[in-house]
Simulated assay, not measured.
Amino acid sequence: MAIVVNLDEERSKSRKPSLEALQRLAGEDLTAVNALILRHMQSPVALIPQLAGHIIAAGGKRLRPLLTLTSARLCNYRGDRHKALAATVEFIHTATLLHDDVVDDSELRRGLATANAVWGNKASVLVGDFLFSRAFQLMVADGSLKVLEILSGASAVIAEGEVLQLVTTNDTETSEQAYLEVIRCKTAALFAAACRVGAVVADRPKVEEEALESYGLNLGIAFQLIDDMLDYSARQSELGKTVGDDFREGKITLPVVLAYRRGGTEERAFWRRTLEELKQEESDLAQAIELMERHGALRDTVARAGHYGAIARDALGIFPDCEEKRALLEVVDFCIERAY
């Protein structure tokens, strides 16, 4: 006799995946990383630490530096280089956030006013440049050309992703492949680099470098897919974020791509009006969500994230079981479970 199991009910009964294990394992190292971040964002130009401190103190999980710290521990590294490199990763990430908010003309991030809303676009762009420069100073101080190659390469790919997104914004004909290339560049490249340098500082074999790079890349894709789905989900407000920001900005994300492809002539006209022409009415966001649900676009975006999450998990298969490996595996579950 077949037994039907309610997965949502079973999920609610079990412990929710979290970042607690990751934070516990890397806690002391992360404290040192935060001190490095504070020290290296200082400048005699008062506006720089003021503006940089605003976005750095605005919250965030420090997920990317945590991945660097834990990947190094997974590879049995016992030195200190990974701390400065984790700070480097966070500087790169923060710089891209400052630039992103200017490009998107965003007024809120994590429920707080963005730096550009407070100090203006020019200051935000220039302080973002300062943080990129600090990141490169930390890379050079590490002294490894390989580390410099990995992190500077990731910075270049992120910039390419920004331009790619600019090209696809407001274009409802964007393909799923083009969308995935944007998030691979904008988000996943830094996840991949953050993980790979953990193996590099530990002087591990290339196969372990590549495994951690694959883990980070696919985790980053899964992470962004869920983020893009959440923009149209009631879960977004539960997480303290505004629903529909991507819609209002005309961003083409996977839920839009799928709903547009699966819709009829009238539905496609709706997407062109709201996203290409940005002629939006108050009821349009609710209609967009209804169309996505009708065509399974949100459900299938989560399924895609699960696919990339599975690849990320498999990438860690070459490492022996340990606390660090279990914590990194739980990160995958955490990123995807945000959808529920």
Rank of each mutant, 00 (worst) to 15 (best):
S155Y: 00
Q224P: 12
V201M: 11
C195P: 04
G161V: 14
I226Y: 03
A154C: 14
E181Q: 14
D171Y: 01
P205D: 04
E176T: 04
E176N: 02
S214C: 09
G198F: 03
D228C: 12
T172C: 15
T169M: 13
A193V: 06
K146D: 10
L212E: 01
I221Q: 00
T168A: 12
E213T: 00
G161A: 15
G220L: 02
S214Q: 09
Y215W: 06
F191T: 02
S175A: 03
R196W: 01
R184L: 09
C195R: 09
G220T: 07
G153I: 02
I221M: 02
R184F: 04
A188L: 10
L219H: 08
L225V: 05
N170E: 08
Y179K: 12
G216S: 07
V163H: 13
A178M: 05
G216K: 05
G198M: 05
E213I: 00
E181F: 02
L151R: 14
L148N: 07
E209C: 12
A193S: 10
L217M: 09
G161Y: 13
K146H: 11
K146M: 05
M229W: 06
V182R: 12
A154P: 11
V201A: 11
K206G: 01
L151P: 06
I150R: 15
L180Q: 12
I226E: 04
A189Q: 15
A156T: 08
V197L: 10
T169W: 01
A141P: 04
D171T: 01
V207P: 01
Y215R: 00
L164A: 14
T168V: 11
L225D: 13
L217T: 07
S214V: 06
T168C: 14
A202V: 03
I183C: 10
S144R: 09
E173R: 09
F223H: 08
K186L: 12
Q224T: 11
V182G: 09
T187E: 06
A194M: 06
G220K: 07
A188V: 09
V163L: 15
L219K: 02
R204V: 07
L217F: 05
A192G: 04
S144H: 05
F223T: 03
A189N: 10
A156G: 05
V201R: 13
E160Y: 00
A178Y: 01
L212F: 01
T174C: 14
Q177W: 04
S144T: 11
I221Y: 02
E181Y: 00
G161N: 14
G153Q: 12
L148K: 04
G143Y: 03
A211K: 03
K146C: 01
I221T: 02
N218H: 11
A192R: 03
D228I: 11
F191G: 03
T169E: 14
E173V: 00
A192T: 00
A222T: 06
S144A: 12
E181G: 06
L166P: 00
E209R: 00
N170V: 00
D142G: 10
A159Y: 06
T187S: 14
M229P: 01
V201I: 14
D227M: 01
Q177I: 07
A141L: 13
V182A: 08
L230M: 02
A199M: 11
L166A: 15
I226C: 05
A189V: 05
